[in-house]
Nucleic acid binder design. Structure first.
Ligand SMILES: Nc1ccn([C@H]2C[C@H](O)[C@@H](COP(=O)(O)OP(=O)(O)OP(=O)(O)O)O2)c(=O)n1
Ligand SMILES: [Mg+2]
Ligand SMILES: [Mg+2]
Length: 1065
DNA sequence: TACATACAC
DNA sequence: TATGGTGTATGTA
């Protein structure tokens, strides 16, 4: 039959192409690239199709096929028979496309002079593929690519960089050739088997498809560039980029029209666009703005997962459920009528400063009218100015009140509006049932747009079908090219060529592709796992003298050592990276006997590695343009310590945890900066609980009380960058603030918060006449009055705080009042004297006590509501907070943290640049929403979990979520208890000694059992409810090609080491 | 464990 | 004149 199609074809290969093993698929070499002779490529591809046809015609005899054939996911009609399904694979157009491509590539190979070109050679410039403009970026459609590539070519031709790129291009071409050979060697029966295996896997994926989550990916538009434009509005209408003449970090959308983009050298950008303005980076600014953005994100998903300074994933499923209960007030955003900063008007965050006042204003009017006290009413209005900012003293700008609806689109629009109001920058978002799709969506309507894929299988499939594979995160230029060589351009093609992919790629990659073509991705947003390596590298003008090379090496080793110490890490494997002036990169590694962070030891290892390299090419000099030093096989010392201590660490962590809850749930706390967290968390150790809140407040207040000045913009909320020494200038200064300051003991102290010195205008609140906001506010007030602080209101953060404040203060406003800004809730409070103001502060502080209310109380609520309450029960992963864990005394740690801004330039600079992993705002609460707020395990749906590891790393504390319970916490002190982080049993009373003893006992048990398990090499255990059945060893299902299995395995390893060292030390 | 490669931002 | 820095994952040996 085969011969009847292609009588001239080679006989089918029956053995493994790699090792010639008799097996058609030797296992070891599955997924290996092998060489395909170009002259047979076209033929071979036709053969593959013939093979498919062969299957087609053989179907009657193929029982296996009959049994395992899974309905074509791209088949709209479920009753369509399998023959049609197979025919759909034989896409004629695609076949032609492939043949064409292979033909062209043959020509390329046949003609060495064309070796740097590919199939598009004759239409495009002769610039090699890997150097062509990468227009897979928003804002780069409709460009004259040909012209741009010509410019790139002319700017690059002949350079060392260019020559090295050519070398790499050739290597890639070789890989493609190898792939073709492998393709040729695939036999008829292998293909059949491939389809069967693929369909099995696809069916499993399909069965576990989860459309129940709403995942949002949010990404700032032209982030660095946008920050620079905000800081210097003169750049706004000009093409600009951030970086230098050597390299650009990003460009604004204006510049993208010229082809100027991230990762392009500045001098090429200039050639593409002579008017291009290139501004240097200000990482401290990006970090600062990033934190502001994250504060908004946390309102929607406190457990969001930042991927870099400018983007994050959120699971908004829960928010959408809660949103139904939100009042109009809570769904309203105060939006400036004009964008940009003003010299004369208030630039504060109106939603933080003004919006609560609007409500309070309404509330006080309501109070007054109820009491028929018109005098009071007038008086009150005077104090509650909604025209002048109490913080900066400037008039508020004109604003609109925009109320958002209930739908996911509305919510995300609201979130983006809040970001824009808070930062002055726009973001784009994707809304989809999983992270993979959400990521694609966020790019679709960029900039300043959003796109949603409804959680419906057909919608998902329709979206994915014609989507170019390159759009999927994880498929880059090389993968795209390799897939193109197989005729795979779109996600649908991944399905159609699944039999080939099965044979040509590793199980991991194949699995990844199959998930993509089904539109399936991860439905979990996970916190970052522990870092696995840390490094520092630098590009410099050529160095070739050994002395200088060693000096550079020592410098880098010292810097790395500093970084390791800063993060309380030690490591065992030292690697160096060198890049020659020819751009050739090498890495060399050496594993030490012991973990270290010692600069001398690191240098000794690095130096030796370098020495060998120098010697290897002697007598020629080793001419380098870059050197780097890396440490891996890390030991996380803080984790280790955590196990050694018990109660102090525990209490401390609870403090940290609680603080984070506050930070993310209390909008009034939202301006705190993550650098401060370390200091905060440590202070808890030796403070009473109340005092630890004072500490939080203090730091918070410090941020607020800073008045930064700028020549370019005026905004009291934000630090201003220091042009001269960006990296040394740190935003976070207020570390050494005196805690006692928060307690206002006299008028002088109070001056910081007291705001009656600011002239308050008469009541002329600027609510839009037609706005329904007033009604919303009134409804809320009614709720407060009638139902106490219960239904409908209790989910409101701002409102509930407000309600509390009012109870404390505004109900006794008959006498002359002064306005103060509460350092805890950040609200403007009217009090007749300091005692009252202090009372208010006390109440606010008490709201944040970390002991939770009795759980029984909650379980009385009806099921419907219980679900909601359960979802609010917060499970905190102490492990994730471990970076704050330290044995050091408070003072030491505080000073250490506080000295960050004085650290070496290199160090600070790196910290700024480190996007996500080193960012302390990543160290957030781990909330598992699936487990009714009890014990949380990490997302193991895709990954096996060691039971012992769970118990080890998931010391969890059950706490109330302050977001949901601020107002329920009024009487907290009456019934509090502690929950053992090990056994999770309630321990009545708050006697820390008793509790300490209990935890000690539990910890001992835990450690012993862990050791036993490790020694037994406990098998990996899949997560209970969400386990996925996968064929072969393909237990991966996250969005990256990898899933996280490797990650997990690593983590287990790390933990074992940690435990070992626990016993060693 | 060592090294190279791909990828993201 | 001039093509970055940090980190992760994977495949292979
Ligand atoms: N190769 C790169 C890519 C990005 N970045 C930095 C600068 C970007 O501003 C920031 C965010 O990256 P994005 O990919 O999100 O790009 P932008 O935000 O600049 O543009 P947009 O998201 O609008 O496409 O990361 C970088 O330094 N180097
Ligand atoms: Mg972006
Ligand atoms: Mg981004």
């Amino acid at each position: 039959m085969w011969d009847s199609y292609f009588p001239f074809c080679y006989s089918l290969v029956k053995n493994c192409g790699k090792c010639n093993s008799a097996k058609t698929k030797c296992g070891k070499h599955r997924g290996h690239w092998s060489i395909l002779s170009s002259t047979t490529a076209t033929l071979q591809y036709s053969k593959r199709i013939a093979v498919m046809s062969d299957i087609d015609s053989q179907e009657e005899n193929d029982e296996d096929w009959e049994d395992t054939k899974w309905a074509d996911p791209y088949d709209k009609s479920p009753t369509k028979n399998k023959m049609d399904a197979i025919r759909s694979v034989l896409n004629v157009t695609r076949k032609d496309k492939v043949n064409m491509q292979l033909t062209q590539e043959n020509q390329v190979e046949d003609n060495p002079n064309l070796s740097e070109s590919d199939s598009k050679t004759r239409e495009n410039s002769s610039l090699m593929n890997r150097m062509r403009l990468n227009d897979n970026k928003a804002g780069m459609d409709g460009l004259d690519k040909e012209k741009i590539n010509q410019v790139i070519l002319e700017a690059s031709k002949g350079s060392r960089f260019y020559e090295n790129e050519r070398k790499k291009e050739q290597q890639m071409n070789k890989r493609i050739e190898e792939q073709k050979i492998k393709l040729q060697q695939i036999t008829e029966s292998q293909l059949k088997q491939g389809i069967i295996e693929a369909d099995k896997l696809l069916e499993e994926f399909e069965n576990t498809r989860d459309l129940s989550k709403t995942i949002v990916h949010i990404d700032m538009d032209a982030f660095y560039a946008a920050v620079e434009m905000k800081d210097n509005p003169a750049l706004k209408d000009k093409p600009m980029a951030v970086g230098g003449m050597s390299m650009l970090s990003t460009s604004n959308y204006h510049a993208r029209k010229y082809g100027v983009r991230a990762a392009m050298p500045g001098f090429i950008g200039k050639k593409l666009c002579p008017e291009l303005i290139i501004v240097p980076t200000h990482f401290d600014r990006y970090t600062y703005i990033s934190k502001q953005v994250r504060e908004v994100l946390a309102e929607y998903d406190p457990n969001f997962s930042p991927m870099s300074l400018d983007e994050a994933y959120l699971d908004m499923t829960e928010h959408f459920e809660k949103r139904f209960h939100l009042s109009e007030y809570e769904r309203t955003v105060v939006c400036r009528k004009t964008d940009g900063c003003s010299k004369t008007l208030c630039n504060c965050d109106l939603n933080l400063k003004l919006k609560p006042l609007l409500l309070q204003h309404e509330l006080s009017k309501h109070n007054s009218s109820l009491s028929n006290d018109t005098a009071d009413k007038t008086d009150h209005s005077e104090k509650l100015s909604t025209t002048t900012c109490l913080l900066c003293g400037r008039p508020y700008p004109a604003y609109d009140l925009v109320t958002f609806g209930m739908s996911p689109d509305d919510s995300v629009n609201e979130m983006r509006a809040k970001i824009e109001q808070k930062t002055g920058l726009t973001a784009s978002a994707g809304i989809a049932p999983n992270t993979m799709l959400a990521k694609v969506c966020s790019d679709k309507n960029k900039p300043n747009g959003q796109y949603r894929i409804l959680p419906d299988r057909d919608t998902v499939m329709e979206f994915i079908t014609d989507l170019p594979t390159r759009k999927i995160s994880g498929i880059g230029k090389v993968s795209e090219t390799m897939l193109n060589a197989l005729g795979v351009y779109t996600c649908k093609d991944l399905y159609e060529q699944r039999a080939l992919l099965y044979h040509l790629y590793s199980p991991i990659s194949f699995n990844y592709f199959m998930r993509i073509c089904l539109g399936i991705g991860s439905t979990f947003v996970e916190r970052d796992s522990e870092r696995k390596s840390i490094s520092t590298e630098r590009t410099f003008n050529e160095i070739s003298k050994p002395v200088e090379l060693f000096a550079k090496c020592e410098e880098l080793s010292e810097a790395l050592s500093e970084d390791l110490k800063d993060e309380e890490l030690k490591g065992k494997t030292v690697s160096i990276k060198i890049k020659t002036v020819e751009f050739e990169v090498k890495t060399r590694a050496h594993t030490l006997k012991d973990y270290t962070s010692d600069s001398d030891l690191i240098y000794a290892a690095a130096k030796e590695l370098l020495r060998v390299e120098i010697q290897a090419i002697a007598p020629n000099p080793l001419r380098l343009r870059l050197m780097g030093v890396r440490m891996s096989s890390l030991l996380h010392q803080n984790l280790c310590k955590k196990k050694q201590n018990t109660i102090t660490g525990f209490i401390k962590r609870m403090g940290t945890v609680k603080q984070k809850q506050q930070e993310y749930s209390d909008s009034a706390m939202s301006e705190s900066e993550s650098e401060s967290k370390n200091a905060e968390s440590i202070v808890y150790q030796e403070q009473t609980l109340e005092k630890s809140h004072v500490c939080v407040v203090t730091e918070q207040n410090l941020k607020k009380s800073h008045v930064y000045s700028s020549e370019r913009v005026e905004n009291v909320d934000e630090p201003v960058k220091d042009e001269s020494s960006d990296s040394e200038q740190n935003d976070e200064r207020p570390i050494d603030f005196d805690i006692s300051m928060i307690r206002c003991t006299n008028e002088k102290d109070l001056g910081q918060f007291k705001r009656d010195d600011i002239p308050c205008k008469k009541d002329d609140i600027k609510l839009q006449e037609t706005s329904t906001l007033i009604q919303g506010i009134r409804e809320n007030i009614a709720n407060v009055k009638e139902k106490g602080l219960k239904n409908g209101v209790h989910e409101s953060k701002d409102l509930s705080n407000k309600s509390c404040d009012n109870q404390e203060c505004t109900t006794s406003t008959n006498t002359a009042l002064d306005s103060y800004v509460c350092p805890v809730c950040q609200e403007c409070i009217e009090c007749k004297d300091l005692t009252m103001f202090n009372q208010h502060i006390d109440v606010c502080l008490n709201k944040k006590v970390f002991c939770k209310q009795n759980i029984e109380k909650r379980e009385e609520v009806p099921d419907e509501e219980k679900k909601y309450i359960n979802s609010k029960g917060l499970v905190v992963d102490i492990d994730s907070d471990s970076e704050n864990d330290s044995e050091k005394p408070v003072l030491v740690k505080t000073i250490k943290t506080g000295s960050i801004s004085q650290k070496t330039k290199g160090k600070q600079s790196k910290k700024d640049k480190t996007p996500s992993k080193g960012d302390s705002s990543n160290i957030e609460n781990k909330v598992d929403q699936k487990l009714s707020g009890q014990v949380s395990f990490p997302d193991c749906s895709d990954r096996p979990c060691l039971p012992s590891e769970d118990a080890d790393s998931m010391l969890s504390v059950k706490l109330s979520n302050s977001q949901s319970t601020n107002d329920e916490m009024e009487n907290l002190n009456s019934s509090k208890y502690l929950i053992c982080p090990v056994c999770f049993m309630e321990q009545k009373g708050c006697d820390l000694d008793i509790f300490n003893e209990h935890v000690d006992t539990c910890l001992s048990k835990d450690e012993i059992s862990k050791v036993v398990k490790i020694e037994n090499s406990a098998p990996l255990k899949p997560q209970k409810s969400d386990k996925k059945i996968m064929s072969k060893s393909q237990k991966r299902s996250l969005d990256s090609p990898s899933g996280k299995q490797g990650n997990k395995r690593q983590k287990t390893k790390t933990d074992i080491r940690t435990i070992e060292s626990f016993f060693n030390t």
